[in-house]
Amino acid sequence: MIKFVGVSKKYKNDIIAVSNINFTIDSGEFVFLVGPSGAGKSTILKLLLREEIPTTGSIFVDKKDITKLKRKEVPYLRRNIGVVFQDFKLLPNKTVYENIAFALQIVEAEPKYIRRRVPMVLSLVGLSDRANSYPQQLSGGEQQRVSIARAIVNEPSILVADEPTGNLDPDTSWEIVKLLSEINKRGTTVIMSTHAKDIVDSMKKRVIALEKGNIVRDEMRGVYGYEA
């Protein structure tokens, strides 16, 4: 469960990125975070990942106020929140397999478990045959699948995706969203920020809409917006 309580974030340059944000996301939900560029979507995800600390307010993940975490505790929060970016953030000098295995090495998993787990995740994202390729040998959609595989290999309870389809064509975008939806069906909470109106409108999932740092709409089975 994720809960934002009166969260505001003012950056050092005095820009108020989000103000008085309140919402609760239950375990297993699929939520779209929508809004124009600069509305504060990324800021909310960064606050959730504890990349930023709110100026005021509290953020609870599984009942724990993550704004009060010590520096040492932050890695353990992040191991419970998989993250996917618009630009994939894969390591170019590691193969697909190694990129995914790396996330397990970091948590000091047993080599035996790594050898079993990585192929499982690769098959889940449909890339079993590309295990030994390097990221630059893959299409954008395939790279994003790898980054999703890396994000879920640790079996986090939450998956955060910040405009994961921003660099992809519509068809590929659909495949990625379907994959995220598949992961959500297996029990992972998914929060995805996006500009893709078509996708949001036809998925009929919860939509939290932001404008200038404020929540302007929070609807179950929502659509992207009512604009003309």
Binding site: L49, P75, R78, R79, A151, N154
Partner: peptide, 16 residues
């Protein structure tokens, strides 16, 4: 730094 940044996102400890 890119690599370090990614490592932090996937939950690497400072010592790692």
């Amino acid at each position: 730094r890119r690599e370090i940044n990614i490592m932090k996102y996937i939950g690497a400890t400072d010592w790692f």
